[in-house]
Computed example of a mutant assay.
Amino acid sequence: MVSFLRPASLAKAACLAIGLALMAGCTTTGTLGTVEAPRPAGDSARHAAMVVDGNNGKVLYQANAEAQRYPASLTKMMTLYMTFEAIEAGRLTKSTQIPVSTHAASRPPTKIGFRPGQTIDVDSAIYALAVKSANDVAVALGEALGGTEERFAEMMTAKARQLGMRNTVFRNASGLPDERQTTTARDMVVLGLALRNRFPQYYGYFGARSFDYRGKTIRGHNDLIGRVEGVDGIKTGYIRASGFNIVTSVNSEGRKLVVVVMGGDTARSRNAEVEQLIERYLPQASRGPVPVAAPAAATAMMDDPSRPQALVQ
C-alpha cells in the first residue's frame, strides 16, 4: 500500500504547525540527530507510514499518510471496535455464543476452521481476531452484529466517519481482498488511538501472543510483541495487493507511540522499519499519564496538536 518522506528541521516544523489536514502536501528531506533516517519497507507504490505521540496526538512523522491503501486484516481492528461497543452496550457478553454461518465458514485462511452451525464464544472470538486474524470468525461477528456482512460493513464505514477516519471505506469484516475497501495510514492511526483510549479495559487482547481454544494453543504472528521493548499490540495485515501492514502501539516509561507501516515487501522488512521508527521517535514523545480521551479526540488531537488538553475528558 505507499511513498516515503523524511523530516527536516524547519520544513517539518512548518508541516506540524499546519496540522495533519494539510500534511499530505508537505514533503521534507533530511535527518534528525544521529539516528539513521527510516528506510521504507516496500516499494513507493504501496508504502505508507505514520508515527503519532500517543499521549497528545502530535504527528512525529508521516510518509504518504493520506494515500489510499488496502487495509487487509487491519480491518479487523474496526470489527473489534464495534464488538467492544456491543459488549459495553449489553448487546453481547463475553460468553455469548456467536453462530458460524455457511458464508463465514467458507472464508479462506487465515481461519480457525468451523462447520456451518457451530458457535464460538465472544471472548474466544476476540482472541481469534486479535491473535490469529481469523477470517471466518470476523465474518461471524459481523453477521451477529449487522445481520449480514454487507450491512455490517456499512456500519463499520459509518463508525469510521464518526471517529474521524475520513478516507476509509469498509466492504467486509475481515479485510479479505476487495478493491473498493480502502483506507490511509492516517486513518489507521486514528483507529489505533481510538481503540486504546476508548477501550483500555479490552486493550490487553491486542498484546496477546497466543490463546487456548478447544484444547489447542493458537499462536499469533506479530513478532514485535515480546521482542521489542515497549510494544504492547496491535494488529498485522497482509493481502497480495496491500503488502505487509501493521499498526503498532508502544508504551515505554510513560512515552507512547502509535506507529503505522503499510505496504512492506516482507513481514521482516516491515518490522524492521517499525523498529527504526520507534528508535527514532520514542525519545521525542511526551511523557504521560494523560486523561483518557474521548473517541473523536484522537482525530482532533492529530489535526490540531496545539490543543491536546482541551480535547480530553
Rank of each mutant, 00 (worst) to 15 (best):
G19Q: 07
L20F: 10
A21R: 13
L22P: 02
A24S: 13
A24N: 12
C26L: 11
C26T: 14
C26M: 11
T27N: 02
T28P: 04
G30M: 02
G30Y: 03
G30F: 03
L32K: 09
L32T: 15
L32G: 08
G33P: 14
T34K: 03
E36M: 07
E36L: 09
A37D: 12
P38W: 05
P38L: 05
R39Q: 08
A41N: 01
G42Y: 08
D43V: 15
S44H: 07
R46H: 15
R46C: 07
H47Y: 15
H47V: 15
H47E: 13
H47F: 15
A48E: 11
V51R: 02
V51L: 03
V52S: 04
D53G: 04
G54K: 00
N55G: 07
K58E: 14
K58W: 06
L60F: 05
Y61K: 14
A63P: 03
R69N: 13
S73A: 11
S73Y: 03
S73T: 02
L74D: 06
L74M: 12
T75P: 08
M77K: 12
M78D: 10
M78C: 08
M78Q: 10
T79E: 07
L80C: 01
L80P: 05
T83S: 05
E85P: 05
E88A: 11
E88M: 06
A89Y: 00
A89Q: 11
A89T: 06
A89K: 10
G90C: 14
G90K: 10
R91Q: 06
L92M: 06
L92D: 09
K94R: 09
K94F: 14
K94V: 07
K94D: 09
K94N: 12
S95G: 13
S95L: 09
S95A: 15
S95P: 10
T96S: 14
Q97L: 14
Q97H: 05
I98W: 00
I98A: 02
P99N: 02
V100R: 00
S101P: 14
A104Y: 05
A105T: 04
S106P: 14
R107G: 03
K111Q: 08
K111D: 02
K111H: 06
K111A: 11
I112E: 00
G113D: 01
P116N: 05
I120K: 00
D121W: 02
V122I: 12
D123C: 06
A125T: 12
A125P: 13
A125N: 09
Y127G: 08
Y127D: 08
A130T: 03
A130Q: 14
S133T: 04
A134L: 04
D136E: 12
V137Y: 02
G142T: 09
G142V: 08
G142E: 15
E143I: 01
A144N: 12
L145D: 13
G146Q: 01
G147I: 02
T148M: 04
R151L: 11
F152C: 08
F152R: 10
E154Y: 10
M155A: 09
